[in-house]
Design a protein around this nucleic acid. Structure first.
Lengths: 352, 352
DNA sequence: TTGTACGCGTTATCAA
DNA sequence: TTGATAACGCGTACAA
């Protein structure tokens, strides 16, 4: 019976019940100081009147929003969607909301989004950096005010936060070594921009694996792009057209790897006999392509869960929580695109 | 210089500048009544002091959160991820936040989520219904309080909201008719639960196409499941084991269609000669499988954009806005899995 | 053009 | 066990 019929508040309940709003508030939150009868009657009336708590008011008063902000490059990618799903799982279990936004790899949009989310007073922020981003001032407000900030997957040493990521170097190393074990001696790499940790790590792993096995490093075999399907195809076209083409490709993602297979097959190459291919991420397409793509597992869903848990722990224990970097395990998922019988494939173009 | 160093408020700025908080508030919002000099000096100091507007307070005062709530079954699906991406695009352009939550097709979780989002006072809600959901009381609060509620894709007549969806019947009809045009005479259907409009519509379209072309309806050729890869495989195993197996399959999604192809090939069937297969959704896997899968386009990203736009229009024009149902076009994307003879039909061939 | 005073709905503090 | 009061930070009707 207050001004508008729109929102029933604790005052409305208090009035009808002839108690104070304080009591109503406490009853609704199961505060121990309120008698069972009062609590019960408050809840009963609240339900009857269709009362809906107003989180906005509560958030303001408590200076806490129970909300996690998430900034990612692009939602519509298998890896990112799984990441978000993991975050949402954990968050919703603890009654946290999740606000998402995508940057499309634009620095400008990342800055704007970070500001918006700060204004929204999210209780924590999970970020996977945009490709373009090379400075990190837009996150300072979070750091200064001790709002937990977690970088996932695409991280940066300049941004001093807790991180959840994989060991890209080790993964790239394992991928390359796998090809070597399968008999490849001239291994190409489809890589991404080197200022992002993910692609840089994978490429370094690739190079180090070659070194370890005393294989020559040929710069012509390293191709950088955004690793789209189209670019994967173009890169492969270039590689296979070389006077001395590779006998194996390690691609830093599955899209490019899949299109590499498609192009190579089109041109009559046999996979994996003539060309072994290994991808990265274990996207759904990797197990559909023929031959099925050997790839590196990427625990995106777990990553999301862990990142969210880390934020929740900060909430729970305040800032006693140790800063913490989580490095998740990856593994080579061996499928047909690299499974060549060493005996059959010993027809090498060049012997080192 | 107020109590804590944590939050700088308009009061802090006002104090330093010896103006009233009102003036600061107005200056920051570019209110016309404030002189340019004042506005400038306020903004300058605000920046210098590292002021960050508190949306929570603003939201409470304005009774508006600039937030769209989104409820979907499961984020980590190509179709849903694209939908969310579309919503976020449109929302962020108008400075709206997007809160997402997934139900895992559980009615219970949908109810809880709806309540949470109502408490968060989202300015609008976009829902794709959980599989389990058969009653809709949990959305009443939105309807009663004139909070725009849009159903997308999975909609229900019992829930009287604006809708954005495709014409599932027409799509199912076209898919089936395409198989018939390709010479199939015994067409099976991999369908989903019939109480959800999407799968029901597709199946009805299938049945009506058969009727139109005077093909017999054989109930043994209609298999219901959740259309996972595993179930697609099992269903196909059953179908191909029938004494009189089908020569075409219309699957209500791409996952099941892809696994149908995989299983059939494994058993020595030739696609499309022995068995033509058409899927639904145009997921990435559909253009990777061999032969590439003919499927139905599903404008998920556009759906998201349109749904968000509809909410924004409600915000802008109040409740003058007409209730509105949007039905998006779908088309048959013809690929190799159904190309059993050269067709001169007007259907456009597409391999993207 | 600027300021005063109040309210948004809730919760924390202190007193009873 | 309950209540009165203030406060969270901002926006706005009204007054100056």
């Amino acid at each position: 019976m207050r001004k508008n019929n729109k929102g029933i508040t604790i005052y409305d309940i208090a009035e009808k019940l002839k108690v104070s709003p304080t009591t109503v508030s406490r009853a609704l939150n199961d505060h121990h100081s309120i008698s069972k009868e009062t609590t019960l009657s408050v809840k009963k009336l609240a339900k009857k009147m269709g009362y809906r708590p107003n989180s906005v008011a509560s958030n303001l008063r408590k200076n806490k929003t129970n909300t996690i902000g998430v900034i990612v490059p692009l939602i519509n990618r298998p890896f990112i969607a799984a990441l978000i799903s993991g975050i949402e799982d954990t968050a919703s279990q603890s009654d946290y909301n999740v606000i998402i936004s995508q940057t499309y790899d634009s620095y400008k949009k990342e800055v704007a989004t970070a500001h918006t989310l700060y204004s929204s007073r999210v209780d924590g922020l999970i970020v996977s950096l945009a490709m373009e981003t090379r400075q990190y001032d837009h996150f300072h407000a979070f750091l200064e005010n001790k709002i937990p900030l977690i970088s996932v997957d695409r991280i940066a040493p300049e941004l001093e936060t807790d991180c959840v990521a994989i060991d890209n170097h080790s993964a790239g190393f394992k991928a390359t070594e796998h090809l070597i074990e399968m008999g490849c001696r001239r291994i190409a790499h489809l890589g991404g921009a080197q200022h992002r940790n993910t692609y840089r790590g994978r490429q370094q792993g690739y190079l180090d694996a070659l070194k370890k096995h005393n294989l020559p490093i040929d710069e012509r075999l390293v191709v950088h792009s955004k690793l789209s399907m189209e670019e994967g195809r173009e890169s492969t076209k270039y590689l296979l057209g070389l006077p001395n083409p590779p006998d194996g490709i390690f691609s830093a993602n599955d899209s490019a790897a899949v299109s590499a297979i498609q192009y190579a097959k089109l041109k009559g190459w046999h996979i994996p006999q003539d060309l072994a291919v290994i991808g990265f991420n274990n996207d759904p397409i990797s197990s559909i392509i023929e031959p099925q793509l050997t790839t590196i597992s990427h625990p995106a869903h777990d990553m999301g869960k862990i990142a969210a848990q880390q934020i929740l722990r900060h909430q729970e224990y305040g800032h006693i929580v140790q800063s913490q970097n989580t490095v998740l395990k990856t593994e080579v998922i061996v499928r047909d695109s690299t499974q060549r019988k060493i005996t059959t494939s010993s027809i090498h173009r060049n012997s080192a």
